[in-house]
């Protein structure tokens, strides 16, 4: 197997997914958790586009369209999450999601 740029970027995408997952599980601040979800999403997007490269010489427009859709979906949910965060912070000092540490 020859090493192509697609391969490197694909592996990077998977690594970003796992790093984001680690952040989501281990970070306590809500803001950090939302950032972590965004990092995860970037990883998935990177992975999706490299599939298009792996399959042939042509770049496949379908995953590119999927990622374009995904980016818009992700900004929408990020905005919702941040609005929710601000509301939570306004109404009470709920910094941590879970009272029980081992829960997540």
């Amino acid at each position: 197997m020859t090493i192509s740029p697609a391969l490197i970027y694909g592996l990077t995408g998977l690594a970003l997914f796992v790093i984001g997952l680690a952040g989501l599980l281990l970070c306590q601040q809500l803001l950090r958790k939302i950032l972590a979800v965004n990092v995860m999403a970037s990883g998935v997007f990177l992975f999706l586009v490299t599939i298009a490269h792996g399959s042939g010489a042509l770049t496949d427009p379908v995953p590119q369209a999927m990622v374009l859709t995904g980016i818009v979906v992700s900004v929408s949910s990020t905005a919702a999450a941040l609005a929710l965060l601000c509301r939570i912070r306004e109404s009470a000092d709920h910094r941590d999601l879970s009272q029980k540490k081992g829960e997540r």
């Binding site: 970027y9 770049t59 990622v67």
Partner: peptide, 9 residues
């Protein structure tokens, strides 16, 4: 994305 020939992205 530019490197992956996806200028749209």
């Amino acid at each position: 994305w530019v490197r992956l020939q996806a200028p749209d992205l």
